[in-house]
Design a protein around this nucleic acid. Sequence first.
RNA 1: GGGCGAGUGGUGAAAUUGGUAUACACGCCAGUCUUAGGAACUGGUGCCGAAAGGCGUAAGGGUUCGAGUCCCUUCUCGCCCACCA
Length: 998
Amino acid sequence: MNYDHNKIEKKWQKRWMDSGVFEAKDDSDKPREYLLIEFPYPSGAGLHIGHPRSYTALDVIARKKRMEGKNVLYPIGWDAFGLPTENFAIKHGRKPQEVTKENTDTFRRQLQSLGFSFDWSREINTTDPEYYKWTQWIFMQMFKHGLAYKDKVAINWCINCKIGLANEEVVGGACERCGGEVEKRSKEQWMLRITQYADRLIDDLKSLDYIEPVKTQQKNWIGRSEGASIKFSLPDVVEEEYGPEHAQNFLEVFTTRPDTVFGATYMVIAPEHDMIEKYADQIENIKEIRDYIRQAGKKSDFERADAGKEKTGVELKGMQALNPLTDERISIWVADYVMAGYGTGAIMAVPAHDERDFEFATKFGIKIVDVVEPQEKVEGCFAGEGTAVNSDFLNGLSTVEAKKKITDWLESYGIGSAKVQYKLRDWVFSRQRYWGEPIPMVHCENCKTKSKYGDGWLPLPESELPLTLPEVDKYEPTDTGESPLSKIEDWVNTECPECGGPAKRETDVMPNWAGSSWYFMRYAAPKSDEMFGVNNWKRTEIQPDELDHRLFDLFEHMQSLLGEHDVSIWASGSLMINGINKELWRHMHDLDLFVLGSDFDKALKILRDDGFVVHEEDRGWNRIEKDGCQVELVPAYHLSGDVYTHLRDKSLPPEIRQQTLHKQDMELSDRGFLWGTSFKTLSPKSMLEHYEFLHETFPDTREGKEDDEKIKFLQDYLKSPLNYWAPVTWYNGGMEHTTLHLLYSRFWNKFLFDIGAAPTNEPYEKRTSHGLILAEDGHKMSKSKGNVVNPDEIVEKFGADALRIYEMFMGPFEEPVPWNMNGLVGAKRFLDKIVGLSGVFVDAEPDDVTRELHKTIKKVTEDIENMRFNTAVAQMMIFVNKCKESGAVTKESFEKFLRILCPFAPHLANELADQLGYDGMLEAGEWPKYDAELVVDEVVNIAVQINGKLRGEVQAAPDASQDEVERLARADTNAAKYLEGDIKKVIYVPGRLINFVV
RNA sequence: GGGCGAGUGGUGAAAUUGGUAUACACGCCAGUCUUAGGAACUGGUGCCGAAAGGCGUAAGGGUUCGAGUCCCUUCUCGCCCACCA
């Protein structure tokens, strides 16, 4: 029966909006559930038919979870800064602000027409100054913590877009956005030190419920490899000519196979390597080398990376290196198969055990020495693991053993050390564009030497945020690479926040990954002026005194000393609370360090050797002094699961001074990073308990009094919406964001956690991914191909419910599926059939209809949780077919069915329930439960097999005994024919089959 | 070249994870109806065969009473990365 979808869909959308049923409460006795989809970029093209796939999926989950009694947050917003809008605006001579408003209006209307249960009261927009105020605030914190820095780097420059691109935005040597040519340019850029978080970004994946492909892609992207760095000396360099600063002339390389160093018969440096110009006088064929470098520079990364092409290179004449193990002189080559950006930009080449080196050595006739023997003989190059040969004291060792031994050896002679290397690079954060967040930094020549930050760059005072984007008439980028903002003089020229003198603003803006790196937090408190603080807590800027500075330096010095030796240190509780209250400096006086138990003696030795005075105190405590600063060092027996904290008051008995924090308190804790320093951060909840404990036990001590304030802060903090909602419980999005947005936002979240602004170490507990919707021709939908499906037309003709049902039914959620208009017709037909059922009800329905209903409830309930929406819809179709077939269903059964239909087709389900006289909205009702006894059939078909081949079928109860089924099977005339010989064995699977082996 | 994923009717796909292969839907064929609609309804629809039966999950081999599912070899397609030492 056909129904007027347009009329009923509008009606219910209005009711949902007016009643506010989908508005989440910041405080509730119900369990919380935070469901998140990637907020869209409101492009001028309008909503893509692929958007609703992800949105419907989580909408189904959100609606079901609400009916199951959860307090659900399912928010929506706009990731609205970015190039396409800016380019469109330039082309049409309009303001990006206006274009963005139009686009978001269209998107909002389109999304609302699909009936998603978003909490529209929390709608956010990254281009809203009240929003980007906090994006700027976060950047500023990063700067203050040394994670944002300016650096002159070779960047990817898109000639067409006139913009610097992150490595990730260069696809196959071309610009990801416009497909245009990309060249290398050197420019001062703001960089974010994401590499500092590389280890944690990998290690913390373990505890997360992300689908495997996401985890492996992130791991591979970060690309951690463990190996060693080795210094090869350069015997030909004449020391006097290069002065004392060059007394240590060597070429350093990184290798994952230090065990093969005996087979290193030559070395290769990247064309960009600085030793070429440094030793230009020494190199006899410098002209030839420079020619080669020039040619290599002309090639794009893409051409250079073309693995199929033949290797090229030139030998440096007049310079050789010394293999420290064989004492042989080996040649040095420049070749573009070695890249400047990875490791040291130089390698030791072991042609016997590396395919690239093998190819190169074969071409240029360089000696090849086998130093690893494989298990089985192989031809040519062998890159695997085996047994060391021709390697002096390594001979006979396995690859793993040899790596360890040679690394120790290198370390003991000071010519190498174990090293971890990453593929991940720091994040180029500047864009020479207009439509982005202004970077809230000021450059003051006068403060260059005086400021604590050193290079003249100063953050704006927080009170000046947001630094709003000035409205201008012309905002086209320039050929020179200057940002459009640089032309607005009265904006660029400003006062220095430190000395009041003339200063200039930063004119680059942030990339559009910035706003999306923390938006999930903004949803928790979309209008808050105290986003990362609460109530009356004032985040006062405390000026560090001279002692603070010295402590700070000392602390950094210790860190660099210990870090070099791979000794882990954590700062103590006093620093943890500082992470939250920002009153960092005050507590620097009380700084303690925890040192990993097993490394404690080593740490002491290193510090003693460096001139620290170590006073042994009681119970393994050590006070360390240098230059008038004191730091306490405490062994933390982390490996045994406990970490100790302590009180300073020596008059107290030791067992009270030293309180053990149990492992369970540490659950939410994690290693953090502060000024390049590892420390252990407790969760705010553990901290609160800790301070409450101290406060109650020692109310009169100095710390006990201060704890009042801390406790109040933590109590407020724990009540804050951000703390309530974080982390996101389920985040669904595209695989294409795995190594960009998803990684960036994990990085920002970790940083904010470390400084106490975010309550959790990880932003998302669970991550799933949807497949693309392709065009009917199986290709990607694109305007240029003219194969784009318009969602407005679909909603108009078939209705939002039909579109939702179809998108859930079309195939497995995580797989790409081609769009098919006929499939949509089928979905509409299914809905019409339901309307047809709704007419007449019976007082008593057949048993099999009831059983089918309970099976359906069970299957739909389970399938939604596992995102198997296609089979959930199929099962609902089976139920509807069953009802039609038997022509009888009770009102009660049908109503239950409407409740499980509701997440998929909410408009129709509500309309029909309303017609039945259902009181209120289905969304406010309960999710139906199934009766476990009714989900199994009374009688099932049991297959009769002879030697595994199907020969008959009998009916029996699912739990029938083997004897009974065997008897029935023998009575089956068809099967009996095959049962004449000896029966060797009978296999019976209850409710499934019986198999006779004859 | 590396990593991940996938190959099942004419099509999108199911298959309780080792237990009756092709559920559900589309399409197609035949029929009914007329309010010609992107209609509805009924029946049929893996292949060969008149039937009995046989053959069928990319190809080949293996384990098993039994394999779409597990193991080995090969091929094809998709996505991501790509000279990462």
